[in-house]
Design a protein around this nucleic acid. Sequence first.
DNA 1: TCATGTGAAGAGCTTCACAGCA
DNA 2: TGCTGTGAAGCTCTTCACATGA
Lengths: 214, 214
Amino acid sequence: MPSNNKEAPRSVIRRLPVYLRILDNLIRNEVEIVSSRELSEETGFTAEQIRKDLAFFGAFGTRGTGYHTSVLRENILRIIGLDEQTNIVVVGAGHLGNALVRYNTTKNPYVNVVAAFDVDSEVVGTKILDVEVVHSSKMKEVVEKYDVKVAILAVPSDHAQVATEDIVKSGIGVIFNFSPIKLQVPDDVYVHNVDLSIELQSLIYYATSAEDKI
Amino acid sequence: MPSNNKEAPRSVIRRLPVYLRILDNLIRNEVEIVSSRELSEETGFTAEQIRKDLAFFGAFGTRGTGYHTSVLRENILRIIGLDEQTNIVVVGAGHLGNALVRYNTTKNPYVNVVAAFDVDSEVVGTKILDVEVVHSSKMKEVVEKYDVKVAILAVPSDHAQVATEDIVKSGIGVIFNFSPIKLQVPDDVYVHNVDLSIELQSLIYYATSAEDKI
DNA sequence: TCATGTGAAGAGCTTCACAGCA
DNA sequence: TGCTGTGAAGCTCTTCACATGA
């Protein structure tokens, strides 16, 4: 394997799934070869950056030709760890949790939502598509049974830390956090925060400063 | 005004709403002064970074003391453009759009969702909380009436480009895009993409590589 | 010839170290 | 004294320019 021993930059890891989606489309259309310039047009990233990203993990292309779509796809799947189906859970079955279960079940290939968790007896026992809403007290059991690696956290702010402790105790090491709380977790747990209020508020800056330019 | 003429770095703009939220909490608890070190503890950003961020726009603090919470809050509101209520719309009233209307209505102060848009006659005319679901053909009318600056786009992929054209024609200049499509827009329209599938897929990398370290 | 792979230069952002001031 | 404000250094990632090889 001609790959590198250095830690992969986060920016590269964030772009890999973008390449993956394009490759899936190309392969669906039976395109066998793609160049970095073509990938650049589809993604908006520069061709040099795409080559650097891919070259970081090894030489997957052919000079003068380009990249073999299916070879590149296999390599990216392996690098990310999507070469085997990944089981995830959604914690919180309110409106946002509900939408996230549906989204990842119908729109996200490569992941499999095995359960949603909630503490509200109104929703425990119901289903979202084919996904059962289970009481949070059973999290460890489900996580061990399905070897779940990632939890999406979408509970109200005042439940977020408690729910996080359930998640950590169940053995999950990666949390995709939608609550606007700085979660307290052990060092070996990886938290990725998406704060929709904050992202929207920062966008307002561009809405108003763009207007000033008129 | 002791502020700067250079364009503000994106990274700074993304952090400003984080400071804003902390300040809102402090002011609610009648705390009048806060230091960069205290803000650091709340946010996880370094104290130097916080001082640099704030100093970019002017000298808002007092040496030896710290920052006056309400003064700093007012300044950040003005910088972002949140000093007056910002009207937004949500385009797409499916499960994700529904959740986003609720989220921004109940959890996001400083923005006001004036309408949701859809083309499905099943949902047009219904309400999400107090927000009416309006047919997309009336977008321009609503946007002009409420001086809407930002649209959240949460429609299925195959409708995303068409919906974008409605948004652009209505006069909106900032789009918060949840669809996994590279939207084609004029140069003066600002698009911010959040692709939930891609973010989750890139997280898998950390789930599996963390495991390898055992 | 043509597109990849890559050292070097450049840009942008963060951290350091300390001057400046209440 | 204590905390802000800031030039300088450092780091990370991107762009450039071109050598490399099918």
